[in-house]
Nucleic acid binder design. Structure first.
Lengths: 186, 186
DNA sequence: TCAATACCGAACTATGTGTTCATTATTTTA
DNA sequence: TAAAATAATGAACACATAGTTCGGTATTGA
């Protein structure tokens, strides 16, 4: 990818994230984005068809390495996040969030960002579906699998939202305990 | 209220509900609403400041009697819905939904209607908060009350959404069983 | 060096929002 | 039932935002 393209793309993402933490997605205009990113109007539309696609691509970029790190879990990763192979994927995710190494938290917690949350849940469900056999959800036996996955995913997202919106006073282990209590695991 | 006002208001609500089951809230224009409702533009704005307020007032109207019937539960109500005083409030709500006596189901299940769901959850939380002592949530002891209430409310909404979007094949008792399994009650 | 291409910027069309106001129709009340 | 009050009409209006177009300029990669 051309360096100019990379720079422009990055500038748009940065401006957009800034604006998203200030106001609702629907209230953000393209004019504001390009002004903050300091690029031309035509340039914006050369990169993103609409504001919706911008959010979609930003989401994918943000989710990419956080989900990948859980999927392709390896020794290096476990060392960085100080966890062992028996920790649940959810604790891994909470750890990632607490480290706040990217802008994902800012977006997960801001008001009126349901579209972003929907994208997050979609990816999270795929992850849960893959890991489902590893988790012992005997207490949900008899319920349709997609129903259970949706429940776990929703509960996780709601837990993160509550956590962030309450100032993240709890540690990653604590909030994982809370979450586990809801799902009755371990 | 003037009969003309009532008629106009009703026409707007009906047109709006129709459009909401066709497309996203954000994609609906005032022009479409007034065309379907067959009223003038100025009339619309005489009734509702914005499209957002329209949704808010519609929501309140729809929620009003469903939540009231649970709150001011009496013999007549129990007779109509064939339930006894020990049934949980959630079973009551599932019963209401299965009867589908108003348009609430249409709106709860349609895509991209997060604003409506947020209003619903807000009212539902108040109801749950009131009923919380009656329910025995010992398994959630140690967790902040608002966190627990949010969890119950979210789980209920997700259950209803899944139920409706899967064709409501389950009976009200069955879906209430599913829901109870998630919350580990009874 | 040079061809490709990304950016610029300004103008333009199109669409939707919300307001205004004089006129007409309906309802309320005295 | 007549008069006053109120609601609806419809068309025009100003305004904001979206998304496009295009000739000129700057940057890049080979």
């Amino acid at each position: 990818m051309d360096r100019r393209q990379r720079k422009t793309r990055e500038a748009i993402f940065d401006a957009f994230i800034d604006l998203l933490s200030e106001k609702d997605f629907n209230q953000i205009t393209v004019a504001e984005i390009i002004e903050k990113a300091d690029i031309g109007r035509a340039t914006f539309y050369a990169h993103f068809e609409t504001k919706d696609y911008l959010l979609k691509e930003l989401s994918e970029e943000l989710f990419c390495h956080i989900f990948d790190s859980v999927n392709n879990e390896n020794t290096e990763h476990r060392h960085i996040f100080n966890c062992n192979e028996h920790d649940s994927i959810f604790l891994h995710l909470f750890r990632h969030f607490e480290k706040n190494d990217n802008n994902i938290l800012k977006l997960l917690s801001c008001r009126n960002n349901e579209l972003f949350l929907r994208y997050f849940k979609t990816d999270l469900k795929l992850l849960i579906k893959k890991q489902l056999p590893a988790l012992n959800y005997i207490q949900f036996e008899g319920l349709p699998e997609d129903f259970v996955i949706n429940h776990i995913s929703s509960t996780f997202v709601e837990t993160v939202k509550w956590w962030v919106n309450n100032g993240m006073k709890e540690s990653d282990e604590e909030i994982n305990e809370y979450f586990s209590k809801f799902l009755h695991i371990k």
